[in-house]
Amino acid sequence: MSRIGRTVALSKALAGRLRTAIRGTALGARMLGILARAGYATHGLLYLFVGLLAMSAALGKTSPPSLGEAFSIIDELPGGWLLLLTVALGLCAHAGWRSLEALLDFGSHGWGARGLFRRAGKLAEAFFYAGLGLLAAVIALDRSAHVREELREEAAFLVVWTGRVLDWPLGHWLVAAVGIGAIVVGVLQILRSRRDIFRDMSAGDRAMVAIRLVGRAGFGARAVIFGMVGVLFLSAAWRVEASAAGGVRAALTALASVPLGDFVLLALSAGLMLHGVFGLIKACCHNPVKP
């Protein structure tokens, strides 16, 4: 057996033992359930709130939201810093659950090329949600106005860092890679909504029909937004112009500018809200010890 084969076999055996040890005790299974459900609930509530902000933008009342702005709006509520800190902990819980799915294969994806690819996606999600949790915690705990204002301006942050990367040797290729990665993530949202996201849920047959409709609509909206973010980064790389890059707010703004853009934005906001509802449903119906 080659060195790589021995390493994979050892990793597989170690992950299997840890997975069995956690699932095999009442305390481990209970803590696993709390971690997974807290993460899914926070994830759902956040998307539901962002969807509401996007719907307000579609109706002409506000501008399209960024995630940083959503956190700042929560922080400005009475006692909002404590609520935002709770959101940060929930996002970190979601990152922890995604890490366990990736490293210990709680999703039963296996150790083949396809399974490792899916688990790599879970690990990338873990880093993403850990970053969001850190952003929420900084906004909640740092009371200095200028720091919070800088953090809430997603577009400025992305433009600054995109500009720095573009100044590197072959930097435009790195920016293009980010764009391609975002488009790939968008495609994966569609593929995941076919079956993967429902395999660890426990509900009746009729309920699962409705859950699948809600889940696929939500993941479809995410796919469109990730795809648009990818297009923006590819445009920045092609034009070597950092200001062309953008995140959620820039993607929603660009989509709102197409013909019938208000209806597109309204549909996407509804999709984001449905994704939030799906997260809350998954928090209720998710079975983290289901193989």
Score class of each variant (00 low, 15 high):
84 L>I: 12
85 L>W: 06
86 T>N: 07
86 T>V: 10
87 V>G: 12
88 A>H: 09
89 L>H: 04
90 G>Y: 06
91 L>D: 01
91 L>C: 10
91 L>E: 02
92 C>Y: 07
92 C>E: 08
93 A>E: 01
95 A>Q: 03
95 A>I: 05
95 A>V: 06
96 G>T: 10
97 W>M: 06
97 W>N: 12
98 R>E: 13
101 E>K: 08
101 E>Y: 01
101 E>C: 13
103 L>K: 07
103 L>M: 15
105 D>E: 13
106 F>R: 00
108 S>I: 02
111 W>V: 08
113 A>F: 07
115 G>R: 08
115 G>C: 09
116 L>S: 06
116 L>K: 05
117 F>M: 15
118 R>K: 14
121 G>C: 07
122 K>I: 01
123 L>K: 01
124 A>I: 08
125 E>R: 10
126 A>P: 04
127 F>L: 14
128 F>T: 12
128 F>G: 03
128 F>E: 06
128 F>W: 12
129 Y>P: 00
130 A>V: 04
130 A>P: 07
132 L>H: 02
134 L>W: 05
134 L>M: 06
134 L>R: 04
135 L>W: 12
136 A>G: 10
136 A>D: 04
137 A>C: 11
138 V>P: 11
138 V>G: 11
139 I>F: 01
139 I>A: 05
139 I>N: 00
139 I>C: 05
139 I>K: 01
141 L>P: 07
141 L>N: 03
143 R>T: 14
146 H>S: 15
146 H>V: 15
148 R>C: 13
148 R>E: 11
148 R>Y: 04
149 E>P: 02
150 E>K: 13
151 L>Q: 04
151 L>P: 01
151 L>N: 03
153 E>F: 05
154 E>T: 07
154 E>V: 10
155 A>T: 14
156 A>H: 12
158 L>A: 01
158 L>E: 05
159 V>E: 14
160 V>L: 13
160 V>Q: 11
160 V>S: 09
160 V>I: 08
164 R>F: 07
165 V>N: 05
166 L>E: 00
166 L>A: 08
166 L>R: 08
168 W>Q: 14
170 L>V: 12
173 W>C: 08
174 L>P: 10
175 V>K: 00
175 V>F: 03
175 V>L: 07
177 A>K: 15
178 V>N: 01
179 G>H: 09
180 I>G: 00
184 V>T: 11
184 V>G: 05
185 V>N: 12
186 G>Q: 00
186 G>R: 10
187 V>D: 09
189 Q>M: 15
190 I>H: 01
192 R>M: 13
193 S>W: 04
193 S>T: 15
194 R>K: 12
195 R>H: 11
195 R>C: 02
195 R>P: 04
196 D>P: 01
196 D>R: 11
197 I>H: 11
197 I>Q: 11
198 F>E: 10
198 F>K: 02
199 R>G: 09
200 D>L: 15
201 M>F: 14
201 M>E: 15
204 G>P: 09
207 A>K: 08
207 A>I: 11
208 M>T: 04
209 V>I: 15
209 V>Y: 02
211 I>K: 01
212 R>K: 15
213 L>T: 02
214 V>K: 02
215 G>H: 04
216 R>K: 15
218 G>W: 03
218 G>D: 11
221 A>W: 00
221 A>M: 12
222 R>H: 13
222 R>K: 13
223 A>W: 04
224 V>S: 09
224 V>Q: 09
